[in-house]
Structure formats: C-alpha cells, structure tokens
C-alpha cells in the first residue's frame, strides 16, 4: 500500500462550462497536516468534496488510504472524518444525541469523553440550533474524529471563532497529528496555515500555484526580509548610507525599516553604522516574509504552474 494517505492525480472537475479544478496533482503523507489555500472559487471545496465522496471527478484519480472515494464509498466512511463548512446537523438534535447517532452509524462506542475534552459537557442536552458558532464547530470536530479515522478533512474549522476556541481547536489538531492522523485543512486563515500545516498548496483558478512547506513557499517569493531598527539619536533616519542587500528603505514612526535579501550582511552593516555614529540601539526586529504576503503575491500575480 502507498505511504500517501491522500493521492490526487490529474484531478479535474467542471460544472457545465466552468472548469473548477484543472488537472491538479498532489499527495498528503500519513500523519501530515496539509493545507489547501486559495481565494474563493479556487477549487478547494470541489477538491475536498471529491475526496470526501460527495462529488465525482470528471478526470484523474483520487485515493484516500488507497480507497476510491466514488466507487468504494462504503469503505470510505470508516477511514475519513469530515468537519463540513455548513452545519450538517438537524437543528433539533441535541449534542448527546448527535454523538450517539454518529457513533451508532460508525459502529463504535459513544465518545462522551470527546465532548468533555472539547468543553461541551454542559451542553449535552442543548439542541444544535441553540449552540454558538464556536460550540457548533467544536461539536462538528468531535463528531468528525469520534470513530478515530486515519484521515480528517476540515473545511474552514476556525472561521468565525473567538481566540480561545481557536486555540482549543489547534491544540486538538496537534493531538490528532501526534496520534498519526492525517489532516487535510482548507482555510482562508494564512496565520493558521503557517502555524499548523506541515505543507500547503495554494490553489488559484483551479490549478496549484504553489506547493511546499510554509517556509519553502515564503522563501521562494520576492524573498525580502524586513529589518526594523530604532536608535536613540535617529542617525539612520538621516543617513543616505547604502547597506548590502537592501532593496528598499522606509521610515515608520520611530523605526527605519529595510527590506533586504541578505539579512546577515545588512545587519552587520547597520550595527557598524550606528556604532560609528555613537547612536545607541533601542530596538531591532527581523521579520521573515509571511505566508500571507506570499499568498497575496501569488494570487495577485497569477502564474499557476
């Protein structure tokens, strides 16, 4: 059996004349958190839904733990857990009933422990429609993993959640990864993707525009690292000195900000400059380009590959 938990080979999906996904291929390794990023209409949901067996492919091959999602739906249900973007539960179903219901269909014992773990123990008798968005998301996640599936698909799991709930869900995702669960995550939240994902694919107009670890993706962009410096006498503000690797310089409040492709050389030169001018250093910050910046660069510039 292949080591990949998820395999997508030349997958195509169209809705009438509109090509939603155009010949994409990628693999997700077992135990990996893989992010699918992209603007609305990029093809993320179509890809996820095809992997979940909700839609058929118009071309290509899809496998989840070696199972064809369309032809082997009966096998698929035990190996995947899905947290859908939309509600997915009857409004009158209570939290406890939902857990009992889904566990019964998966033929596993009821997982009340998961509800407690996700802070829903006081909401056992509450109907789904009366839960807050955060509680609904937590319940949805609990139901998705109740039968211990080896692969979990999460569609915008933290959208609209408060910080505390978001942290809880991230913690849960880390715990799942630690137990070897593969997670495929579709999100608009770049910070979340950068923090949680081992690898990400950026989809643009149905194609993969970039794929790799968040660090790889940010490194392959324009490559500018931001160096912000604040000194006591402001010698850098007045200076016209050209530092190595610096492409651009701006002044933001009390800081002088340099965009550089050569962090080490730039820092050495800046420190030498302020020492020579007898200007004590107050603050120095080095910020790598974020995934969000790289994402915007890709989505604004196009260029799918």
């Amino acid at each position: 059996m292949s080591e990949a938990a998820v395999q997508v080979v030349n997958f195509r999906k169209r809705y009438g004349p509109v090509v939603a996904v155009d010949n994409i291929s990628f693999e997700v390794s077992r135990g990996e958190i893989f992010g699918l990023l992209g603007p609305n209409g990029a093809g993320k949901t179509s890809t996820l839904e095809a992997l979940e067996g909700l839609r058929s492919a118009d071309g290509g091959t899809l496998r989840v733990m070696g199972v064809d999602p369309t032809r082997e739906a009966h096998k698929l249900r035990d190996i995947i857990g899905v947290q859908l973007q939309t509600s997915g539960l009857p409004g009158s179903m209570t939290v406890r009933e939902a857990m009992r219901f889904f566990c019964a269909y998966h033929r596993v014992p009821e997982r009340v422990d998961l509800l407690q773990r996700l802070g829903l123990s006081e909401k056992m008798s509450a109907q789904y429609a009366t839960l807050s968005t955060g509680q609904q998301r937590r319940l949805s996640l609990a139901l998705a993993v109740a039968h211990n599936p080896p692969v979990v698909f999460l569609d915008e799991p933290t959208a609209g959640l408060d910080v505390a709930t978001r942290i809880d869900l991230h913690e849960m995702m880390r715990e799942l990864r630690a137990t070897g669960t593969t997670i495929v995550l579709a999100t608009h939240d770049m910070a979340e993707a950068e923090k949680m994902c081992d690898r990400v694919a950026i989809l643009l107009r149905g194609r993969i525009a970039a794929i790799g670890t968040p660090r790889e993706l940010t490194a392959t962009g324009s490559g500018f690292t931001k160096v912000s410096v604040r000194t006591e006498k402001g010698s850098l503000t007045r200076s016209d000195a050209a530092f190595p690797g610096v492409a651009r310089k701006t002044v933001q409040e009390d800081y002088v900000v340099y965009f550089t492709t050569s962090v080490g050389a730039t820092l050495s030169a800046i420190l030498a400059h302020i020492e020579a001018n007898g200007d004590p250093l107050i603050d120095l910050r080095v910020e790598r380009p974020t995934l969000e910046e790289r994402f915007l660069e890709i989505t604004n510039g196009g260029g799918a590959r």
């Binding site: 249900r77 995947i80 899905v82 997915g88 539960l89 269909y105 998966h106």
Partner: peptide, 8 residues
C-alpha cells in the same frame, strides 16, 4: 451531506 459522509 453529513449523513452521507457518515454512512447513513
């Protein structure tokens, strides 16, 4: 959709 995924 949710029911289908979970084998109902």
């Amino acid at each position: 959709r949710s029911f289908k995924i979970n084998g109902v």
